[in-house]
Simulated scan of single mutants.
Amino acid sequence: MPLSFLTADRAFEQAADDSPLPYDDRDRWRRPYRPGPWRVAAAAFLLLLASYVLFAAVVIALTGTMSGAVLVLVIALAVVAGALRLLRMGVWVSAHGLRRVGFLLTRTVPWGQVGPVRTTQQPVRWLGLPRTVQGQALVLVRRDRADEELPPLLTTHNADFLARPEAFDRAADTVEAWAAEYAGAAPAATAA
């Protein structure tokens, strides 16, 4: 069974040097990078927890209290859905626009509204927690809301890129290339 999220980096690495967008079907939504080890580990832990909860639901069903078994089954399914949503989080691109998938909310910005996409040096949240550290962030400025400050698309300290600076650079370059082709903005130079 092909896992499409594992092929993102391979497609980028196999692309020709003159083609920053290595995908043939550009109408399909794609994440231009692999999920990071922290995100995969958290999802694996949640799936392990869900297996124990499912086992508990079976044991409760065998003891004869079906209402309790159904409640525990619903809890297990919610944990599985949470783990799958955690794996889908990130930045996705297609010919239609740029999509930022969060745990509870997904926002899509059409390319016509995308302004400059650039990498900046700024304080970023460490693994999404309130603690901030100095790092790099890929920032999007919308043309229709230039004064509104949006959360960064990618950071060097989120669950996908913590301790993987080269993966962050590759993903940021790819998103900037998509923005340059579809939004008509030249990719900004990476701030050091």
Rank of each mutant, 00 (worst) to 15 (best):
Gln121Phe: 11
Leu150Pro: 03
Asp18Leu: 02
Val114His: 01
Val93Ala: 11
Gly97Gln: 07
Trp178Pro: 01
Ala185Ile: 12
Val124Ala: 06
Arg107Ile: 12
Glu149Asp: 13
Ala50Ile: 10
Thr120Ser: 10
Thr174Tyr: 05
Val72Leu: 07
Pro187Trp: 04
Asp169Lys: 09
Ala15Phe: 03
Gln113Glu: 15
Arg26Pro: 01
Asp18Tyr: 04
Gly115Thr: 09
Gly82Leu: 14
Ala180Leu: 05
Arg125Gln: 14
Arg145Met: 09
Pro2Val: 12
Ala44Phe: 07
Ile60Tyr: 00
Val91Ala: 07
Phe55Leu: 15
Leu48Asn: 08
Thr65Glu: 09
Arg170Asn: 03
Phe45Arg: 06
Pro116Glu: 13
Val58Glu: 05
Met89Cys: 14
Leu150Cys: 04
Trp111Val: 07
Asp24Thr: 07
Leu98Gln: 06
Arg30Leu: 12
Gly184Tyr: 10
Val70Ile: 14
Ala41Glu: 03
Val58Gly: 10
Ala180Gly: 15
Leu127Asp: 07
Asp17Gln: 09
Glu148Met: 09
Pro37Glu: 07
Val58Ile: 15
Ala56Ser: 11
Ala185Glu: 15
Gly102His: 09
Gly128Gln: 09
Trp111Ser: 07
Leu46Val: 04
Asp173Tyr: 00
Pro35Tyr: 06
Ala95Gln: 11
Trp178Phe: 15
Gly82Ile: 02
Pro151Tyr: 07
Phe55Pro: 00
Gly36Ser: 10
Val59Cys: 03
Gln134Tyr: 02
Tyr23Cys: 01
Glu13Ser: 07
Gly36Cys: 09
Ala172Met: 03
Pro151Lys: 06
Leu62Glu: 10
Leu73Ala: 14
Val175Asp: 04
His157Ala: 15
Gln121Ile: 10
Ala171Cys: 06
Leu77Met: 13
Val40Met: 11
Pro110Trp: 07
Thr155Trp: 06
Phe45Cys: 15
Leu138Glu: 02
Glu13Gly: 03
Val114Tyr: 02
Arg100Met: 13
Pro35Leu: 06
Gln14Phe: 05
Val91Trp: 05
Arg131Lys: 13
